[in-house]
Amino acid sequence: MFDDPRGPYLQPEELRATAGRFPFYWTRAAYSDGGGGGRFRRGGGSWSVDFPKSDQQFLIVIKRLMRLNAYDWENPVALSDPQLRKYPLIYMLEVGRMYMTDAEVEGLRGYMEAGGFVIVDDFWGARAWDNFLWNMRRVFPDKTIVDIGLDHPVYSAYYQIEEVIQVPAFGNTVQLTECGGCYPQVKGMYDDDGRLMMMINFNTDLGDAWEWAEQPSYPLEFSTYAYQMGANMITYAMTH
């Protein structure tokens, strides 16, 4: 037995009531998907892939790398929940199967317009992209998604990142990609004042690298990059 150094786990009601007690909450956005699994529940729907181990492990490591005074446990919040606005950064993955309700579209639009920052991760291939794009056009019909080049300050916000790496899912470290011939891309969406409000990690799976970093079979190179990107995205989002 060993004592868990993490702080206490708060039940959902208590977590809601004390939002703001910690300067930072690693918040996962819960959304509806095409399989009808959009209900907010553990393990239900594509939003919850890798949940909660990926979130917990990410927090353990990132708090060792950064001076981040964060709540130690996962914090899933539905896009349609007004409580979402109390967490200015959300993590959203597997958006290739996303199928947002109108309320979720409204919630995400308001969140981003108010200043919220969205990290998107773990979706692969043209079909997933098209689905994500379709959903995002419901949120912002007129906004375009553009590439974020390596000269962007996000790559130097904490670590100096020189190259965008394709991070494979656990168990896929040989083939790397989950779609034929696709390469990793980092894209973004900016608001009307030119401020980055969404960072999209496409054809890559940072979440798996966070989740399985402790596994000897998972190459350190990928988890190192994934944590570096995590630290940079958080630092950038919290200062810009």
């Binding site: 300067p23 001076r67 981040l68 200015p88 200043g115 958080i234 630092t235 919290m238 200062t239 810009h240």
Partner: peptide
């Protein structure tokens, strides 16, 4: 600022 906090982002935005 002694640690990453949201005040930084939003204060900077407010006076940008």
């Amino acid at each position: 600022e002694g640690e990453p906090r949201w005040e930084v982002k939003f204060m900077r935005r407010a006076v940008a």
